[in-house]
Design a protein around this nucleic acid. Structure first.
Lengths: 344, 344
DNA sequence: CTGTTAGCGCTTTCAT
DNA sequence: ATGAAAGCGCTAACAG
């Protein structure tokens, strides 16, 4: 592209001889014969400037195709207009709706969202947050692996809101595990099951919480319960657990998430097992493929999208983002085909 | 939080009396008795400063917990160290691996990634790109709905790379539709099919390209082919197409993507049809749930992750990002259970 | 090798 | 209501 042949379509960008340079408030000021500070006011503090002037300035800005430079604005104000969401694994379908919810709230409010993965490692999570902090106005941390002290220290410099994870010092939005698990266990008990396996993931906070709760709740119902640990919260992880599930002799399993449940279903099918006759399985989250599974997955539907929107709303609210309020959202048991009365 | 009660753990942040303020290179400079510019050099231009000095500066920086402020750096350099990926729909599983590929390359190179949705609307896409442009060093645009002129104009100000979409003025990374569709059609023909339906999406560039190609390729093989349009590239869209697929009398269908194929499979199952006996279906992309479907989906596997990494690599390379080179990646036909010989 | 200086684009007192 | 001037944190000549 030649730099000395401006044409009509590039006109807006052809300022003081240089093509491609973005117009600044100085260009607008010069064009309308006013001071840059007046331009700044006209564009950002409605009413604090003469109506006619403001109109003229807006017109000039439009003609030039002016866009504020967020970086330049961030320096004096300390506010960048961008937030970050940091999560263990982008490709986990559980996070899609959550990200989308957060992104929509951010965009509707004129903010930009940075997405960053931690691969489920605490050190990477810490490093990521520290790196991102100077350039954002706050962080949404999903399923954090960090302890409360670290999180509290980090939150001292920029607000942090937790999602799918709760810790004393931070505001957080989480699903209501207790009522959800109660429903799931009641469902199983009503079907006639006597012993269930909890297929969990080592490490994650939310997993510990679920297991403890499951233990209590199952005991209260006279249900036997064992914990079986999977290495990763994935389809492969679930598939690998089949042997242990069968060995345990349970008639029902509560999976850490739908991915794990999918893996278990699939492994069972391919080893010729008939489900739900051989054993029932309940997933967690209700990701889009849950109803695609065969048998269609009974699962605890997590309000993923809403967790994302609520968490982001909390984050962008200066008041709420500094108050460690816990928002707990209901979980819904979606009964499909993967649960039935035990055959033994 | 009280501002006049510094404690040990906040020591690093307790600079010139104010708690919570992030240390700057001025703080480091003062601490080691050097000039800020020397600090800047020591931290960013390895070798251009005395080894001992550099060591001292790094030590001080570490003690203070210094992190560069990307906003402040962006102003003089014009480089923000962040890139944006803009795509129609975050929750489409097709984009997960693509985003992840892009994110990993960005992070490995020390860059930050902004993710933004356009809801598949050209106006939103345009607005999004224009808004993001001042704060990024380049954009990765996935499955763009904009025409070449608009894209070319936008790319004049900051580099843009296309993914899953090809347009004359931009570098792009796309799957090799021709060889992929050839394989798919050959597979169907070899199975004995004589007429196929192409289940497409109105509007998207990549859809037009696929349909035209399918038309040519099918004709060359003596296969009859009809186009059936779905409203959205989703499970629901696919399900709704069942009536028209049956009415068309074809024995095989090529779906726009796996989501649409899933919907079709599911609708067929629930109306009592036996697949692949009633008709065969081939998906596109090979998203994680393709092998979870029943029957497991035969599909053209798109190298999503690699498209993401290659596109991002192109984008962060100053040379390549300005050269409209087209990278075409192979598609692989993954034969599973949803295709078989026709029964009529 | 290190210090000085100016400036990136914008906001924000403080004057006028 | 508008202008002048300083400064956000950092980099980049240019001197020394």
């Amino acid at each position: 592209m030649s730099t000395d042949e401006p044409n009509a379509s590039q006109d807006a960008a052809a300022i003081d001889g240089r093509i491609g340079r973005r117009p600044t408030i100085y260009d607008i000021a010069q064009r309308v014969g006013l001071n840059p500070s007046t331009v700044s006011r006209a564009l950002n503090k409605p009413g604090r400037t003469n109506a006619a002037t403001e109109e003229k300035i807006r017109a000039a800005a439009a003609e030039l195709g002016y866009r504020v430079n967020p970086m330049a604005r961030a320096l004096p104000t300390g506010l960048s207009g961008t937030y970050a969401i940091v999560l263990p694994d982008i490709t986990n379908p559980v996070h899609f709706e959550l990200i989308r919810g957060a992104e929509q709230v951010a965009r509707r409010s004129g903010f930009t969202l940075i997405v960053s993965e931690t691969e489920g490692a605490a050190e990477i999570e810490l490093e990521t947050i520290e790196t991102l902090q100077p350039s954002v106005d706050g962080l949404l941390v999903v399923a954090s692996r960090l302890d409360d002290d670290s999180l509290a220290a980090l939150a001292a410099s920029k607000p942090i809101v937790g999602a799918n994870h709760s810790t004393p010092s931070l505001p957080s939005v989480t699903p209501d595990l207790e009522s959800g698990l109660t429903d799931a266990l009641d469902h199983l008990r009503d079907l006639g099951h006597r012993s269930v396996a909890y297929l969990g993931l080592g490490g994650a906070w939310i997993n510990r919480a679920r297991w403890e709760l499951t233990l209590d709740l199952a005991a209260a119902r006279g249900l036997g319960v064992v914990e079986i640990t999977v290495d990763e919260p994935t389809v492969a992880g679930g598939a690998e657990s089949l042997r242990r599930v069968r060995a345990s002799g349970v008639t029902a399993v509560l999976a850490y998430n739908d991915l794990v449940a999918h893996g278990l279903l699939r492994a069972a099918r391919s080893s010729g097992l008939q489900l739900p006759e051989a054993f029932s399985v309940i997933g967690f989250d209700d990701i889009f493929s849950a109803e695609l599974a065969v048998p269609a997955l009974t699962t605890l539907r997590s309000p993923l999208r809403e967790i994302g929107t609520r968490a982001m709303e909390t984050l962008i609210d200066p008041e709420r983002s500094r108050t460690p309020t816990k928002v707990v959202l209901p979980l819904e048991l979606v009964v499909r085909e993967s649960t039935a009365a035990p055959t033994r």
